[in-house]
């Protein structure tokens, strides 16, 4: 039965839980699970050919993740203030969150403005286009000198990246809004402020939120590499320390926890986006 027909059927409400369970069962595709199993098996097979100092076993990495997550005393010997993955993960996540919020506010505002006013666009475009093609990472050593080793330089780098990404998304979203919406609102007597609030902002929300998820996904790697280049805590510092100790098992456990956090953040963002854009046909 197609979803449309399903929703038209009378008495759908009591069936809701059932359809949700069914949707979940459909999402857990046995073939996809088999794919994961094959992936782990291949990894396991490779560990038999390679020495453990090159490629640790999947079980070893999983065990290491479990042990290190709450307490990894070895890390304290290298001067990390938080000798566990949890604390450093929290540090990295805080930085990413702050940077994404700050960068998004800047980028969305400038993107919408430049889509509205050709003069602003002509002025900002060369800067944003350059910043959009050049890897933002190039700025990391400069920020380290200007702001020193610490939170500020890493956060600045990610703010910059998020702002550029969202500027591009917001400008495109605003340009894609069908002019008929604004014209209709104007005909009905809406002023500039009401057009902005009731037409332009809602119409651009789905695309901007899509851009936010993309920026969020990229922010983790950038934050980690900024910490790798110079920081006293965070997952990047952990990876740097473990690389210095030639500990691929620890690095993989750290990467795994960072990747899982990124997935979790993306899932939360996706849920929030789905909720915020329930009304929109474009979001589906």
């Amino acid at each position: 039965m197609t979803p449309v027909a399903d929703s038209l059927r009378p008495g759908r409400a009591p069936d809701r839980l059932g359809s949700r369970t069914r949707a979940l069962a459909r999402a857990v595709d046995p073939l996809r699970l088999a794919g994961v199993a094959i992936g782990v098996a291949v990894w396991q097979g490779l560990t038999m050919l390679l020495p453990p100092i090159i490629l640790p076993t999947p079980a070893g990495v999983a065990g290491r993740l479990r042990d290190d997550f709450w307490s990894a005393p070895a890390l304290s010997y290298y001067g990390l203030t938080e000798p566990n993955l949890y604390g450093n993960l929290l540090y990295t996540a805080q930085n990413v969150l702050v940077a994404v919020l700050a960068g998004a506010s800047i980028g969305i505002a400038s993107g919408l403005l430049s889509a509205r006013f050709p003069l602003v666009q002509a002025g900002l475009d060369p800067v944003v286009m350059t910043a959009g093609t050049v890897p933002i990472l190039i700025a990391a050593p400069f920020l380290l000198i200007w702001f020193g080793v610490g939170r500020t330089s890493a956060v600045c780098l990610v703010v910059f990246y998020v702002a550029v990404t969202l500027h591009i998304f917001a400008a495109r979203a605003a340009r894609n809004v069908d002019p008929i919406f604004e014209q209709s609102a104007r005909t009905l007597g809406a002023g500039s402020r009401r057009v902005l609030r009731d037409v332009l902002l809602p119409a651009t929300v789905p695309e901007i939120l899509g851009g936010l998820r993309i920026a969020l996904a990229g922010a983790w790697g950038l934050e980690a590499v900024a910490e790798l280049l110079g920081s006293q805590s965070g997952m990047g510092k952990v990876i740097e320390v473990l690389a210095g100790a030639t500990d691929p098992q620890g690095i993989m456990a750290a990467l795994l926890s960072l990747g899982s956090t990124a997935v979790l953040a993306d899932l939360l963002a996706a849920l929030a986006v789905a909720r915020l854009t329930r009304w929109s046909a474009a979001a589906r």
Binding site: R32, L33, G35, V36, L137, W220, A224, I239, L242, A262
Partner: peptide, 20 residues
């Protein structure tokens, strides 16, 4: 078959993998 392993690999932050 490759969908989930691929999605998993894509979630690992690329730049953080340099030391590995």
């Amino acid at each position: 078959l490759v969908d989930w392993p691929l999605q998993f690999i894509r979630t690992l932050p690329l730049l953080a993998m340099v030391p590995l």
